[in-house]
């Protein structure tokens, strides 16, 4: 489907299928509690990679390590984007500058800003005009703001949030806030997009919309997506590969079909009574 957007959302320098993010033997402790224990992951350019697991399995901790909010005690995280970068000891804003964007489990928008300002703040790393030029707001600084305003409009169109672009975020319903947060992450022109439970707390219709947006971003722009999600229907439907975490360890990895039929996963994660549910056929639309 060609929509004729003028902007390129994907900033990755890799070709589809090349190794983009490599997590190696990651170990993370909080005092005496082990959150992650020797986790390995290989994520390739252009795929939708889902991370699932019961509550407290370490999924969000893993994302937080990748985006630099937590620093693991052992192991390393390599990111490929115009060369190899070791993310393990970088600070969050340095990682963002490499093109790693994310959303949060509990919406972390800039609540008192409008939708437009939230999205423009997402494009922060691309804005170059210096402080003096910004204070005077003449020439280059103004042109830059207008240029990004145009770029943001493409995202607004993609996510179908035209009607709320001038609304203050705090006044919006939950489902729309989730959508704006996705938009803010897209405004960074991500090479890789980390989504922490993008569909949590949504009704079926909102979930369908969100799944469609995620697929749009992935298929049209080729943005790699790493997804944490509890809704198994969605995960099995849209992901290319799935990793399963349990108590900080990776217990399985593979295509949705492989994971679904893995006895370890069924036992350790879903419990026996849910195994019957999974034997029902799923359709990949």
């Amino acid at each position: 489907m060609q929509r004729g957007f003028s902007s390129q959302l994907n900033s990755s320098s890799l070709r589809p299928g090349e190794l983009q993010l490599s997590v190696e033997h990651l170990q993370l402790n909080f005092g005496g509690v082990t959150a992650l224990l020797g986790v390995d992951l290989q994520i390739r350019q252009g795929e939708i990679f889902a991370i699932i697991g019961p509550n407290g399995a370490g999924k969000t901790s893993l994302l937080n390590c990748i985006s630099g909010l937590y620093h693991p005690q052992r192991g390393r995280i390599l990111f490929y984007h115009n060369g190899e970068h070791d993310l393990t000891h970088l600070r969050p804003h340095q990682i963002a500058r490499l093109g790693v964007a994310r959303t949060f489990q509990n919406i972390e928008l800039f609540r008192h800003m409008t939708v437009l300002d939230n999205l423009l703040a997402g494009a922060h790393i691309h804005m170059k005009s210096n402080l003096l030029a910004s204070l005077i707001y003449w020439g280059m600084a103004q042109r830059e703001q207008i240029q990004f305003r145009r770029f943001i409009e493409d995202i607004i169109e993609l996510l179908e949030i035209q009607a709320i672009r001038n609304k203050v975020v705090a006044t919006l319903p939950y489902g729309l806030q989730k959508r704006v947060e996705l938009g803010r992450a897209l405004a960074l022109r991500p090479a890789i997009l980390l989504l922490d439970e993008p569909m949590a707390g949504m009704n079926t219709e909102e979930k369908e919309d969100m799944a469609r947006f995620i697929l749009d971003v992935n298929e049209e722009y080729g943005v790699t997506i790493v997804l944490i999600e509890h809704d198994m229907g969605v995960v099995m439907d849209i992901s290319d590969r799935v990793a399963v975490l349990n108590f900080g360890q990776k217990i399985a990895e593979g295509t949705p079909d492989e994971v679904r039929n893995n006895p370890l996963v069924i036992e350790a994660y879903l419990g026996e009574e849910h195994a019957a549910l999974l034997s029902r056929p799923f359709s990949k639309s």
Binding site: G68, H93, I95, A101, R102, F104, E108, L109, F110
Partner: peptide
Amino acid sequence: DQDIAASVMG
């Protein structure tokens, strides 16, 4: 408004 999100946005 949200300093952690700000740092993750670069």
